[in-house]
């Protein structure tokens, strides 16, 4: 190894493999996490380095369940099906991951929503119990934000996932949590001022912030708890190997491009 390479050490806070024990985000895997952490709890450790309480872990489980719309016609999931139609479960899953790496569909929308909630939280300051103040701050944020990410519900009047999540939050006695309250104020302002309904992307952001995640950690967390949606479609799609997904019949494709023309290669 050259001196240059020897001198370049990459610091990591993620993990180290040992002989009889491994470390993960500052915790001993067998000594501290095994038997004491759920799958949701492990995801929180992985992404945010957060050790959630059992009740927090169940809240995360509730969020995952409320977001579970695995309908294969929904764009990211259909993409998964298309690639999986050649028989590769993980290829389909990997392709599906690609579509959510944007700000229009998928987990990253929750980051923008989390940042908006953080901004609202800063504006509200310590007056969270002053309903008029919170409403005014929410209205101001909605007014000054050109594109309110995490709001807008296509093809239906409201996002049924938000309603279901609200019931879970109520049942767990968490409706008084700061970011959920702020979301409620923001949702009311968005409906009143821009006729926009809150969607589950913003709701997930509020839950994640209340669990202690940073806005930046919200996207990978949302993706991880939604991974089951992609895997269910990738698994079934790979098993089915549907010919119609591999190639649509001519009757289902309409050419709208340039009409036939002769090749005349430009000389210069």
């Amino acid at each position: 190894m050259t001196d240059e390479a020897r001198g370049h050490v990459i610091k990591t806070h993620v993990a180290r493999a040992g002989w009889d024990e491994h470390e993960y985000r500052g915790y001993r895997v067998f000594g501290e996490l095994a038997g004491a952490t759920s799958m949701s709890g492990l995801l929180a450790v992985a992404v945010g380095g957060l050790r959630l309480s059992p009740d927090d872990e169940r809240m995360l489980d509730d969020l995952a369940v409320c977001m579970a719309v695995a309908e294969p016609r929904i764009w990211p999931l259909k993409l998964t099906r298309l690639v999986a139609s050649y028989g590769g479960t993980m290829a389909g899953f990997s392709a599906g991951c690609g579509i959510v790496d944007g700000t229009l569909v998928g987990a990253w929308t929750s980051v923008a929503a989390a940042q908006a909630l953080r901004a609202l939280s800063d504006d509200v300051g310590d007056r969270i119990d002053d309903d008029d103040h919170v409403s005014a701050c929410a209205a101001a944020l909605v007014t000054r934000t050109r594109r309110l990410i995490g709001f807008g519900v296509p093809f239906r009047p409201r996002d049924e996932r938000v309603a279901a999540l609200g019931r879970c939050i109520e049942a767990r006695g968490r409706s008084g949590c700061r970011h959920w309250r702020l979301l409620s104020a923001l949702a009311a302002a968005a409906t009143r001022l821009k006729a926009l309904e809150v969607n589950v992307g913003a709701a997930a952001a509020a839950v994640m912030l209340d669990l202690g995640f940073s806005p930046h950690d919200v996207a990978p967390m949302v993706f991880l708890i939604n991974a089951n949606l992609f895997l269910s479609n990738a698994t079934e799609g790979a098993a089915q190997r549907e010919p119609i997904l591999r190639e649509l019949p001519a009757s289902l494709v309409r050419y709208v491009g340039r009409p036939p023309r002769p090749v005349c290669r430009p000389a210069t």
Binding site: A5, H8, I10, T12, R25, R51
Partner: peptide, 11 residues
């Protein structure tokens, strides 16, 4: 082990 990673435990 190329390049070298160094783990620092942090909670």
């Amino acid at each position: 082990n190329t390049p070298v990673f160094e783990y620092e435990a942090r909670r």
